[in-house]
Computed example of a mutant assay.
Amino acid sequence: MNVTINDIEFGESLSIAQVGKLYGQLLTSIADEKAINLDLSQIERVDTAAIQLLYSFQRDAAAQGLVIIWSNPSKVFCDAVDILDVPAFYRAL
């Protein structure tokens, strides 16, 4: 069985300036009904708006039974989630 995966790569910065574009990519990924690989390895700056968007995305995708692969979340990303006291949603799958 050949599994198709949508890949979304994040650059060094994930902030409110990128949230609009990212939201569109995430909606498209959900609509495709394929597994989704989110590469978080390059993130060096992240803000609350971006984390809120990804948290919400995880919840919505899981409700639709989609597989989310959180590839190599950077230390900065993990630390930001911890500081915000958000459950480690990126480890959910």
Rank of each mutant, 00 (worst) to 15 (best):
A92R: 13
I51H: 07
I30P: 02
D32C: 12
D79F: 06
M1P: 11
A35G: 08
G24S: 15
L40A: 03
I83T: 10
S15I: 04
A92M: 12
Q25V: 00
T48K: 07
R45Y: 12
S13W: 03
V67P: 08
M1W: 10
A31K: 15
V3W: 08
N37C: 12
V81E: 03
I5C: 11
T4Y: 09
K75H: 13
E12N: 12
Y55E: 10
N2T: 15
I8P: 02
V3A: 12
I16W: 00
Q52G: 07
Y90C: 01
L38N: 04
I5M: 11
R91D: 10
F10I: 05
I69E: 12
A80K: 08
L53E: 01
E33C: 09
I30N: 07
L66P: 01
Q64C: 10
L38S: 02
R59L: 03
L54V: 03
I68R: 01
L40W: 00
Q64T: 06
E9L: 10
L53Q: 02
P73F: 00
A50L: 00
G24L: 15
V81T: 05
Q25L: 06
A17V: 14
L14I: 05
R59V: 04
L26Y: 03
S71W: 10
N37S: 14
T48D: 06
L26E: 05
D47Q: 07
F89Y: 02
R91L: 15
E44C: 07
M1E: 13
I69H: 12
D47I: 01
A31P: 07
I43E: 08
G11I: 03
A50P: 00
I5E: 10
T48Q: 06
N2C: 12
A49C: 03
I16E: 05
L54H: 01
T48F: 04
F77G: 01
Y23P: 03
L93P: 14
A31M: 09
P73W: 00
D85T: 10
F77Q: 03
L26I: 06
L66T: 02
K34C: 04
R45N: 10
V67H: 13
L38K: 01
D47S: 06
K75L: 13
L14N: 02
Q18C: 00
D60N: 11
L84E: 06
Q42G: 13
P87Q: 05
N6Y: 09
V81N: 02
P73M: 03
Y23H: 14
E33Y: 08
A61Y: 01
R91T: 14
L93H: 15
W70P: 05
D32N: 12
F77R: 04
I43F: 09
K34A: 04
L84R: 08
R45T: 13
I30E: 08
C78R: 15
L27R: 14
Q18V: 01
N6A: 13
I16R: 04
A35K: 04
K75F: 11
G11M: 06
I83W: 07
S56E: 13
V67N: 11
L93W: 15
I8N: 04
D47E: 06
T28Q: 14
N37F: 03
S41R: 07
A62W: 02
S74F: 04
D85N: 13
E33I: 05
K21H: 10
D79T: 09
L14V: 06
F10T: 00
S71A: 13
Y23N: 14
Y55I: 07
A35R: 02
L84W: 01
A35Y: 00
I68H: 01
L84C: 11
L66N: 06
A92W: 09
